[in-house]
Design a protein around this nucleic acid. Structure first.
Lengths: 151, 151
DNA sequence: AGTAGATATGATACAACATAACATAAATTA
DNA sequence: TAATTTATGTTATGTTGTATCATATCTACT
């Protein structure tokens, strides 16, 4: 999908929720969409400042990322302390829980939608120790096709 | 199980692997066994220094934790940046992959062994995006029995 | 016992990630 | 246009983790 369409879609989502899609936010989201792998808040700060006269500080980037996460436009990968755009940036419908596989070699991350069988498995095994599941997002580590061919 | 037995067992595991079970290591593992919830490296540093004349620095604690992780005596919860003892500290046999549920309210963490169905599900869905699973440990978030009753 | 090699820890500095707190600016709405 | 809400600026600081080089301690060998 064209990046401008994605941004337009993101803008709409924000506005519908009573948030603004400012230049800074647009710019930072664009950088994250174009990124080959997950980026840290400091990566995004640097990227922004390389390409803009007005500078931004990490504090602001964290705030902007928090906003995007609330808008469900961005996910945080807590193990990596990095951020990726939601792969369903352009869908209208609501989504299942999702999780991520991160390539140990190149750092690429893939979002995976959780199927119902998996969700059920997780819920069951969590209840078996007396817990009630709240947030099922998680990260796994592996090797992507490219990297496992090379080694 | 009595804590001294657990420590004795840990000592054996270390020695079998050609590692030493020094006083510092013993002391720090003991603190982690007694902990009610996961502790950070800095928590463990403070705990140690409160109870000992010879002080230890975070750097050393990180090294000791790395050692325990290699010995499979301790797990790191990467989302929390905290550490817990392996719930199978005293078993001899090798273990499946495991994951954790963390209570969002009280911070308590429970280790859960992955059953084969779940392992298979994960492997399948990861392969479906061209990845090969390497490390399947992860964390989920929920509410423990106590905390969900209170609210 | 003495020494060589491996293992463990000390010590200092710093990098990377993240938040607190208070001020200003810009948009929205009443 | 004044009041309110939303977004960002600014500075300081907290938290987590690693790099590097030095010293100590244990183990095994002759």
């Amino acid at each position: 999908m064209l990046i401008d369409n994605l941004l337009e879609h993101a803008a709409q989502k924000c506005q519908q929720a009573g948030g603004r899609f400012t230049d800074k936010r647009r710019n930072i989201l664009k950088n994250l969409i174009n990124a080959k792998s997950p980026l840290s808040a400091y990566d995004l700060t640097e990227l922004y400042n390389q390409n803009n006269d007005k500078k931004v500080q990490p504090m602001s980037v964290y705030r902007i990322l928090d906003f995007f996460i609330e808008m469900k436009l961005v996910h945080k990968l807590p193990t990596l302390n990095k951020y990726v755009v939601c792969s369903h940036l352009s869908c209208q419908h609501s989504h299942q829980d999702q999780y991520f596989v991160v390539c140990k070699s190149c750092g690429d991350a893939q979002e995976i939608s959780m199927n119902s069988k998996l969700t059920q498995e997780l819920n069951e095994s969590v209840s078996s120790v007396g817990f009630q599941l709240v947030d099922a997002q998680f990260e796994l580590f592996g090797l992507c096709k490219n990297c496992s061919n090379q080694s």
